[in-house]
Amino acid sequence: MNSPSLQMDDAVYERLNRLCQAGNELTREGRFDAAVTQFNDAWELVPEPKKDWEASTWILTAVGDCYFHLGDFKSARSVLEYAVRCPGGLGNPFIHLRLGQVMLESGEADRAADELMRAYMGAGKDIFAEDDPKYLAFLGTRAQL
């Protein structure tokens, strides 16, 4: 967790935020490789220890989302598992959704069911609405929804 004395330099935060906004725009355009570059540049600006900053949570989540869309499930898993350890990461329905989807795509059905259930419990079935219905259908084979 961020301690009250842990504050990012305003100029660094503004630059980081601009890079993330550019990454978000590229993501909306479906340009996931280019978005990853922007988010990685933002990640480089996060002070050490990186896991202590809320900015790390949203940057890593965005990178993991891009890797998921690119079909790079190994990279997505690594980034999302780190995001879970950052402030607000554990229990974040979107992180658990993407992690569950990555696990399912990687053939880890039990872990996928656990992560997808965390997403479902945190945000309901609506969190699945924009993705392939197979993920919610899979969860329905493992739990009474």
Results as ranks from 00 to 15, higher is better:
S3M: 14
S3G: 15
Q7H: 12
Q7M: 14
M8R: 06
D9R: 08
A11G: 09
V12S: 04
V12L: 09
Y13I: 06
Y13Q: 10
Y13E: 09
E14C: 07
R15M: 08
L16D: 02
L16E: 02
L16T: 02
N17K: 10
L19M: 02
C20D: 06
Q21K: 13
N24T: 04
E25K: 11
L26K: 07
L26C: 05
L26S: 02
T27V: 11
R28Q: 15
G30F: 05
G30P: 03
R31D: 10
R31T: 11
R31P: 12
F32Q: 04
A34F: 10
A35C: 04
T37Y: 08
T37M: 08
F39H: 06
D41F: 02
A42R: 00
E44W: 08
L45V: 04
L45C: 06
P47F: 06
P47D: 07
P49Y: 01
P49Q: 03
P49N: 08
P49T: 09
K51P: 14
W53F: 06
E54G: 15
A55I: 13
S56I: 08
T57C: 06
T57L: 07
W58K: 04
I59A: 04
I59P: 06
T61F: 07
T61K: 10
T61C: 10
V63K: 01
G64P: 05
D65I: 13
Y67I: 12
F68Q: 09
H69M: 11
G71C: 07
D72G: 10
F73P: 09
R77S: 14
S78N: 12
S78I: 15
L80W: 01
L80M: 03
L80I: 07
L80F: 01
E81I: 05
A83C: 07
A83M: 04
R85N: 12
R85V: 11
R85W: 09
C86T: 08
P87D: 01
G89Y: 03
L90A: 15
N92T: 09
P93E: 03
H96F: 01
R98A: 02
L99R: 00
Q101I: 06
Q101T: 05
Q101M: 12
M103A: 15
M103Q: 13
E105I: 05
E105D: 03
E105G: 04
A109H: 07
A109D: 13
D110G: 02
R111S: 13
A113F: 00
M117I: 13
R118A: 09
A119W: 02
A119P: 01
A119E: 00
Y120R: 04
G122C: 00
G122T: 00
G122Q: 01
D126E: 12
F128C: 01
F128T: 03
D131L: 11
D132W: 01
P133W: 03
K134L: 12
K134D: 13
L136I: 08
L136Q: 01
F138S: 07
L139A: 04
G140P: 09
A143V: 15
A143K: 15
Q144W: 13
Q144N: 15
L145Y: 07
L145S: 11
